[in-house]
Amino acid sequence: MVATPPRRFHFRRPSVIPGFGLTFGYALTCLSLVVLLPLAALVARASGLGLSGIWDVARDPRVASALRLSFGVSLLAALTASVFGFVVAWVLTRYDFPGRRIVDAAVDLPFALPTAVAGIALASLYAPNGLVGAQLAKVGIQAAYTPIGIFIAMVFIGLPFAVRTVQPLIAEIDKEVEEASATLGAKRLLTLTRVVLPPLIPAVLTGFALAFARGVGEYGSIIFIAGNLPFVSEIAPLLIVIKLSEFDYAGAAAIATIMLGISFLTLLVINLIQAWSRRRFGYV
């Protein structure tokens, strides 16, 4: 690795670097106090219901439909964000056009823009009397206050994840491989589908999973644009808020625990994807 003068020390000797106890201890303490303890309180509250109680909450038709909606729409939105995010990432890294840098910076907007601001902006844009909503209304589509509105907000939230996970990988595709493929007579499309795309799949999946996880939990931007109608456009996080205002703490905690479990699973899946890609493509 780094060209250093001859050493008498072994290359890796963890004991040389100090501060493990301090930093590890501090990080673990913070993590426990800020994240683990409150989450444990949540699980403890929900476990008051027992596993069967949590299951009953999940099976309640209204809760079930809210969870279905949150996960279903989020899945669709993450899919859309992944597809378009891939195109955006590809265009941004492979092509040069005026204003590319600005467009590139704009991708991060949903990270930095407060969700409530995004929510009211999207609502006023896609409402039937809004700029885009009016055009959609002409062709008979009502976007805001329907699941389509939720979809739009989730795509907005998820897009940067989809772009930013794939973009650096596209930037670092070895062009020689593409050239080799081309010289061996492959058409461009074949090169893309057989040579360029496969190594990108894990990143696309990771971006998809992140956009999905974020979409499922999103609240601020969605409540302004969803119709919040039970069984139609009521998302799971809103149902948590509703349960709280009904003073049903256990019910709220149960829904939250279910969502938390699924967040865990999503993160696990991301890790598995990465482990798989390490094996499949030999990445470290």
Binding site: V35, L39, G217, A253, L268
Partner: peptide, 21 residues
């Protein structure tokens, strides 16, 4: 993974857990 967890926790849940504590 635990450090990552708050990323994928719904903001509403993030607030609620402190109410519960």
């Amino acid at each position: 993974t635990l450090i990552d967890l708050p990323f994928s926790v719904s903001p509403v849940v993030s607030g609620m857990i402190y109410v519960l504590v």
